[in-house]
Design a protein around this nucleic acid. Sequence first.
DNA 1: GGGAGAAAGTCTAGGCATAAAAATATGCGT
DNA 2: ACGCATATTTTTATGCCTAGACTTTCTCCC
Lengths: 172, 172
Amino acid sequence: MTADQTERDHWLDGETKIADAPDKHGDETHLWLRLLTCTTLIETEIRRGLREEFDFTLPRFDLLAQLERAENGMVLGEISKRMMVSAGNLTALVERLVESGHITRTTSPSDRRVQIVTLTPFGHSAFGEMAERHRAWLNNLFSGVSAEERDVLLAALAKLKISVRQGLAQER
Amino acid sequence: MTADQTERDHWLDGETKIADAPDKHGDETHLWLRLLTCTTLIETEIRRGLREEFDFTLPRFDLLAQLERAENGMVLGEISKRMMVSAGNLTALVERLVESGHITRTTSPSDRRVQIVTLTPFGHSAFGEMAERHRAWLNNLFSGVSAEERDVLLAALAKLKISVRQGLAQER
DNA sequence: GGGAGAAAGTCTAGGCATAAAAATATGCGT
DNA sequence: ACGCATATTTTTATGCCTAGACTTTCTCCC
């Protein structure tokens, strides 16, 4: 039992880095590490689920999620912006998804620099199944947080996001 | 000006994925994407700073941060747990840090399976410089969030972390 | 039209990350 | 002492990711 637990419980907390530090009021580092820990724990679990249940990766899933919401396909550059990854990264990712039959890629007739990527019917249905499980996983992971607390979190993160974007913008 | 802005502002929001979706009360997916967006924005900025100012990577920095807090070095497995990365990953990471002179690695005399990694004086001072800038970057990115809001966030994330760990534990 | 420059994407080199299997070392029960 | 399970790390096979250089294509201005 204990041996089984260590399998998935084997990670200590990333926060342990500074957990012993004095809990200073307004310590950004502490807050950042806690944020990072939460995100990493959730993300790792989702990656694991996708891999074990669907033999799929998170970047692939994210790309399908983008296309799912675009009626007539998407341009590569647009995908890059929305997924927050470099364009160079997408070349291989798209290539593999084309090979596996989830998407198609065509050169735009009006501008031959542009590559248009669209979901195939197979890709659409595959995404549907995965998205359903994805929601269930999140539901489970968030089940210990009440709806009110979620709203608090959502609002607090909204403020943080604005703050971060301002910080990034100012830097120039 | 606009051209300059797009350089660092070029990312749309990852959240845009579902931003148009009905703002259902208690939508875990929405909350998750917002969490992920905040983390990604901050993490990307930190990676950029480390690379541009110190020609360093975040995993390297994180590893030094672990060692900084361990008086007599750390065992590889312990580092793996604390950094939440696989052991196989560390082999190359440690190798490069040894080459660059930031750390040393020795085999434990009492158990020759075990590798003990310690910070060199150079590694210690290098980390100090980077950590100072690291704090400054976070300070900037969080500057739009008041101390009270930070406390709210810290507490909400604490609850989330517990929820996530429970969800992971139950799953068996 | 023709060329400068911008835009879209690809290519290359390098680093980070995992899982799964293998190598090495320890240690315990008998 | 022997053998087998266990613990620690490395190796191997893949995939993700970035930056920076490069190619192709388009646009705009002359």
